[in-house]
Simulated scan of single mutants.
Amino acid sequence: METFPQQENRGSSICEVLQILGAKWAFLVIAELAKGPKRFKQLQRDVAIIKTQSLTDTLRHLAQNGIVLREVFPTVPVSVQYSLTEKGLDFQAALMEMEKWAVKWAQQP
C-alpha cells in the first residue's frame, strides 16, 4: 500500500501531540485550567481523582511543553498558581471536538 507524504506528516504530527498531551491526566488538568487559573490545592480538590504525585508530574510535564504556565508568588508561604498558556488555550477547540465525539458515540458499541 502506497502512503502519501501528507499522511506520513499527519501521523508524525499526531504522535508529537500525543507525546505532549498523552499523559494520563493531561486532558483532565487542561479542561480544569480552562475554567481559569488555580492554585495547586484548589486544582487538587477539583480533580480529586488524581493523586498528588500524579498531578505534580502532569503539571510539570505540561509546563515543560508550554501548555501550562506555573507562576510563583513571593508570599509567606510561597503560593503557586497554574494557568493555561496561549498554546494551552488554543487546544480547547480540539478538546471540545473530542467531547462531542465522546457524547455522540457514548451509547453505541
Results as ranks from 00 to 15, higher is better:
Gly36Glu: 08
Glu99Asp: 08
Lys35Phe: 00
Ile49Gln: 06
Lys35Ser: 05
Val72Asp: 11
Met96Thr: 10
Leu43His: 09
Ser54Asp: 15
Ala34His: 13
Val78Gln: 06
Val47Tyr: 10
Phe73Met: 06
Lys87Gly: 02
Phe27Thr: 09
Glu16Ala: 11
Ile14Leu: 08
Arg10Ser: 12
Leu89Cys: 15
Leu62Phe: 14
Ala94Leu: 13
Phe91Glu: 12
Gly66His: 04
Phe40Glu: 09
Ile50Ala: 13
Leu21Met: 05
Gln19Ala: 14
Ala94Gly: 12
Ala94Trp: 15
Lys104Ile: 13
Gly22Gln: 01
Arg70Tyr: 06
Gln53Pro: 04
Val17Cys: 13
Tyr82His: 09
Leu43Pro: 04
Glu16Gly: 14
Leu84Met: 09
Met98Asp: 03
Ile49Leu: 11
Lys100Pro: 04
Thr58Phe: 15
Glu16Asn: 13
Ile49Met: 14
Gln64Lys: 11
Gln107Ala: 00
Ala63Val: 02
Trp25Ser: 15
Leu21Phe: 10
Val80Thr: 01
Pro5Gly: 04
Gln44Trp: 03
Ile50Pro: 09
His61Trp: 12
Arg70Val: 11
Glu2Leu: 07
Glu86Arg: 06
Asp46Gln: 05
Lys87Glu: 03
Gln107Leu: 00
Val68Thr: 13
Arg70Met: 07
Lys104Gln: 08
Ala102Tyr: 14
Pro74Val: 03
Asp90Ala: 15
Lys100Ser: 08
Gly66Thr: 05
Trp105His: 11
Thr75Glu: 12
Gln81Thr: 06
Leu69Met: 06
Gln81Tyr: 02
Lys24Glu: 13
Gly66Ala: 12
Gln7Pro: 00
Ile67Leu: 10
Leu28Met: 05
Val78Leu: 07
Gln7Met: 08
Met1Asn: 01
Ile67Pro: 12
Glu86Leu: 08
Leu18Trp: 03
Lys35Asp: 01
Ser12Val: 02
Leu18Ile: 01
Trp105Asp: 08
Ala102Gln: 15
Glu2His: 00
Leu62Val: 11
Gln92Phe: 14
Leu95Asp: 02
Asn9Val: 03
Arg60Gly: 05
Lys35Cys: 02
Gln7Glu: 04
Leu69Tyr: 05
Leu84Gly: 03
Val76Ile: 10
